[in-house]
Each structure stands twice: as structure tokens, then as C-alpha cells.
């Protein structure tokens, strides 16, 4: 290789260095360490960690709380994702129409997104509070008061789900709004002229043309469903009786409340595997199907 060839190589390597260092230190190295740690025991006091093979994973399979967290997370994902996407689309359709005060509506729908999740959780704590809470007060008018929404096994998870939908929908609405504005108005006119009403136009024209946006949003929603636990920490701490324990919260609990870092590492590996599988599916399979051009 010539002198200039070496030079170019050196320059490229130097230019890539900062990004490589950051990626290695904060992404890849932790992943490898986590995978490695998941095969070792947790060091305690004077006992150093030892190689235990798949013992942590065996514990996991036998752990009912792990399965509870998985089930909860599945319910959480399967409800928050479709509900927030549908709500986002409905809100986007509403504020893209030529209505009076649509600017105000856009702002109102978007506000929950701007608020920090912990602040949101605290607002909703008041809504959900028994007796003096907004919802319980309202139900009390019909003689159905006295509910501890966050304190009951049946209602705690739905309550947490409702907050997530409320918070995420406004964010997704922005993407749908941009997507809707990309659709040529003559396509809508053509559809109406051909006899399609509002629902037919929505189903046959707008939704298919919004599929790239929907894919993007659903990736974000899936990641959100496994990543958002601030409100669980602030409101229920996984309770009552693990009714609101999500996978990431369970990892946090094991790692930083019980200090069982090896078990937390094994749980993290499972979470990473789930997210990787979803990402592969979305980019490999769904991506090919939604791009119509």
C-alpha cells in the first residue's frame, strides 16, 4: 500500500475512533459483560462470584415472579401499543381536519408527551387516589365509590396502561400528522368521488398510505413498552402482589434493590433477546411489506 493509502486509512480510523469508543464503552462492552455475568453467581461479602453455568436461567424458569412480569409485560405491550396507535391516528385525523381551534387541540394532545413521566405519574396518583381522587369521586356520584384503583390486583395494571396510552398517543400523533400531510389531497378527493365515505377512504387509502409511519411508530411503541417503567417506580413499585411488575422493573428490583446482580444480568439477557427478535421481525419482514413504492 502506498503512503497516501496508509494516510487515508489512518484518517478514517481516527475519525471513527470517538464513535467507536462511545459505542464500545456504553453499548457493546456492557452487553458482553452482562452476558458473561449471567453465567456467574452474585459476589457477596467475602464470597467472590464463581462460574455457575445456566443456574441463573434455571432459577428464572422456576421463578413465578419472572413469569408474572413476562405476562404483565405482554399484556402491557399488547394493550398499550394498539390503543396508543389507534388513539394517535384518531387525534391526528381530528387535528388535520379544517376545524376551528385545531391549534389548541394539537397543543392539548401533545402536552402529555412533553411532561416528564414522573410528573405525569404524580398527577395520575391524585386521579387514582381512593375517596378523594378524581375518578373515585366521580364514581362516588353513582354510588360506586370506595375504589383503591392502584391498590387492587384487578385494576392496578389497567390503570398503569391507561397512563401510558395517554402519554404516548400524543407523541405518535405528531408522526401521523406529518404522514397525513404527505398524502396528496387529490387522492382523498378521488376516493370520495369514487363513492368511498369517510371510513372506506380511511381504510382503503389513508391507512395503507400511512403504513411506513405505522411501522416506525410501532417500533417506538414496542421499545417503549419494555423501556418505560418510571411510572411503575413512582406509583406502584410493582405492587400490589406484583400485579404491575414489568420486566424492566423486575430487573431494576433484582439489580438495585436486592443486589442480585447476576440474576439481573440473566433477566437483562432475556430482555435484550426479546427486543432483538422484535427489531429483526420489524425491519426484516414488516419493512418489506409496508413500502408500497
Amino acid at each position: 500500500m502506498s503512503m497516501t493509502g496508509h494516510r487515508t486509512m489512518l484518517y478514517s480510523a481516527l475519525l471513527l475512533l470517538p464513535a467507536t469508543v462511545l459505542l464500545w464503552v456504553f453499548t457493546y462492552q456492557p452487553i458482553f459483560t452482562t452476558i458473561l455475568n449471567s453465567f456467574y453467581s452474585t459476589p457477596r461479602g467475602r464470597r467472590p462470584s464463581v462460574f455457575v453455568g445456566l443456574e441463573n436461567y434455571e432459577t428464572m424458569i422456576a421463578d413465578p415472579i419472572f413469569w408474572k412480569a413476562m405476562t404483565n409485560n405482554l399484556i402491557y405491550a399488547l394493550t398499550t401499543i394498539p390503543f396508543s396507535i389507534a388513539l394517535a391516528l384518531a387525534m391526528a385525523l381530528l387535528v388535520s381536519a379544517n376545524l376551528r381551534g385545531k391549534g389548541l387541540m394539537r397543543m392539548a394532545f401533545f402536552t402529555p408527551t412533553v411532561l416528564p413521566m414522573v410528573a405525569v405519574a404524580n398527577i395520575w396518583l391524585f386521579f387514582y387516589a381512593p375517596d378523594y381522587g378524581l375518578i373515585d369521586k366521580f364514581l362516588g356520584l353513582f354510588g360506586m365509590g370506595g375504589n383503591n384503583i392502584l391498590g387492587s390486583v384487578e385494576t392496578a395494571l389497567p390503570a398503569v396502561i391507561a397512563i401510558t396510552v395517554w402519554k404516548e398517543a400524543g407523541f405518535f400523533m405528531i408522526f401521523y400528522l406529518a404522514g397525513l400531510q404527505q398524502i396528496s389531497p387529490t387522492l382523498i378527493e378521488a376516493s370520495r368521488l369514487e363513492g368511498a365515505g369517510f371510513w372506506q377512504t380511511l381504510w382503503r387509502v389513508q391507512i395503507p398510505l400511512l403504513m411506513p409511519t405505522t411501522l416506525f411508530i410501532s417500533i417506538n411503541a414496542v421499545i417503549g413498552a419494555f423501556r418505560l417503567v418510571d411510572h411503575v417506580v413512582a406509583m406502584t413499585k410493582g405492587g400490589p402482589d406484583n400485579a404491575t411488575t414489568l420486566l424492566l422493573f423486575y430487573i431494576y428490583q433484582n439489580g438495585f434493590a436486592f443486589w442480585d446482580t447476576a440474576y439481573a444480568a440473566a433477566l437483562t439477557v432475556v430482555l435484550l433477546a426479546i427486543l432483538a427478535a422484535i427489531a429483526l421481525f420489524q425491519f426484516g419482514y414488516a419493512d418489506k411489506r409496508v413500502h408500497y413504492r
Binding site: 387522492l187 378527493e189 378521488a190 368521488l193 408500497y292 413504492r293
Partner: peptide, 12 residues
Amino acid sequence: ALVFQSYALFPH
């Protein structure tokens, strides 16, 4: 029936 200037064919 109407033929639009841009044709307005549904791309999908």
C-alpha cells in the same frame, strides 16, 4: 367520473 390532472392514482 373525473380524471384528475395529476391522475390521482392510488400508489399502494
